[in-house]
Amino acid sequence: MTTTAAAGLRFDDVAVGDEITPVAIPITYKRICMNAAATWDWFPGHHDPEYARSQGQQTIYLSTLFFHGFIDRALGDWAGPDALLRRRKISMIRSIYPGQTATLTGRVVDRRGVDGKGLIDLELMVSSEEGPCVPSEATLQLPTE
């Protein structure tokens, strides 16, 4: 089942197996330039195509900090603004380039109460047209009342 947040999800609204609402975002040269400027990450693989190709990349590519924000945004879109990110792990296994679309999908794999807090664990994946790119995990704290 896919759930969506109108006013925001509460802990009791969520069950193991629920899927998050997928989010897709087109990746352009402009967005990758914005990526460097907005995050101060001026590693040349993210703004210099010649350097990126010398690394074996197709051209400039999205950075770690883009994926942090993109995943957090998608989780907020799904769960609502009162959801609190407690943990996020991402692994980069394939780059995403201009002309591609980054799409986040995911599902709830556990829900647990810890010290009165309602926590849910999610398995996530950012993919492009070339396949899986950034397998990820997150733990959200949701309102319990």
Binding site: I25, M34, T39, H68, G69, D72
Partner: peptide, 20 residues
Amino acid sequence: SLVEDANPRYWEGDECPPGL
């Protein structure tokens, strides 16, 4: 703007995305 995050905690409040 980069990630098209409309969360009102950022646009209308005083919070910062943890990804930053």
